[in-house]
């Protein structure tokens, strides 16, 4: 447990020291919110949530790529793969929750008539999905440029796809959109239930995906035999 928490702590420390990144993390959802502010409020809030998701995914992508060289030596230093990916996801979730607070307060200050419990759930969902999503891309693609472009593609598809279409459910942040609809448009509970279920399933699948990729990359190789000191 100490190893897992140490990795989480160091992930948190690293991200908090990237002041430029933190600023952009805050600026991105704010821009998304303000740019749609003149239009229908629901779109503005949905854009805000997508902005949070994108920001946290990008932070996760960069944190994962930056740790690529460090992780093998931590593995040799006694860490198991699950200490590394779970510790990192824990640290990223914490950062995501911290940056979510002002975006929970923003519509409130703006006087929006929302179900604020729903907004909180949508933010949680967005952060929960975004961290392992960015990590998975970072684990699969070795270079930041490719990862960023893939992330951009996914988020663009997410923004443009018809949420009622069957393909929309395959996008990672569909859950956030459903919960946001419940929060903004005061629709029936089905939206909330579907959204929460989708969020949980997608988060679990992404964490399993990260676990699989990291475990394969940091596996004990068959050619190496360890003997105790004789």
């Amino acid at each position: 447990m100490n190893r897992l928490l140490t990795v989480a702590e160091m992930t948190l420390r690293e991200l908090l020291r990237r002041r430029g990144v933190l600023l952009l993390l805050l600026l991105m959802p704010l821009t998304f919110y303000l740019i749609r502010r003149d239009a229908y409020l629901g779109q503005s809030v949905r854009s805000l949530l997508l902005g949070v998701g994108w920001a946290v995914s990008t932070a996760a992508l960069f944190a994962t790529t930056a740790a690529r060289e460090l992780e093998p030596r931590l593995r040799l230093a006694g860490y198991r793969p699950h200490h590394l990916y779970l510790g990192r996801v824990l640290g990223l979730w914490t950062v995501g929750l911290v940056i979510s607070v002002p975006f929970f307060l923003l519509p409130m200050i703006d006087g929006a008539d929302l179900r604020y419990g729903g907004l909180a759930a949508a933010l949680l969902c967005s952060v929960a999905v975004a961290a392992p999503f960015g990590m998975l891309i970072g684990a699969l693609l070795p270079r930041e440029m490719e990862g960023t472009l893939l992330l951009l593609t996914v988020v663009t598809v997410q923004m443009l796809i018809d949420p009622a279409g069957s393909g929309a459910k395959l996008t990672p942040f569909w859950s956030t959109r459903e919960i946001a609809t419940w929060a903004v448009d005061h629709t029936d509970q089905g939206y909330l239930a579907r959204g929460v279920l989708h969020g949980l399933v997608v988060t679990a699948l992404l964490v399993v995906g990260v676990a699989a990729v990291v475990s394969v990359r940091l596996r004990r190789r068959r050619h190496l035999r360890h003997l105790p000191v004789g």
């Binding site: 093998p72 190789r221 050619h223 190496l224 035999r225 003997l227």
Partner: peptide, 13 residues
């Protein structure tokens, strides 16, 4: 043990 060889083995005590 960071990459695998095509042949051979390593023993570490």
């Amino acid at each position: 043990g960071l990459i695998s060889p095509d042949a051979g083995e390593v023993t570490v005590s």
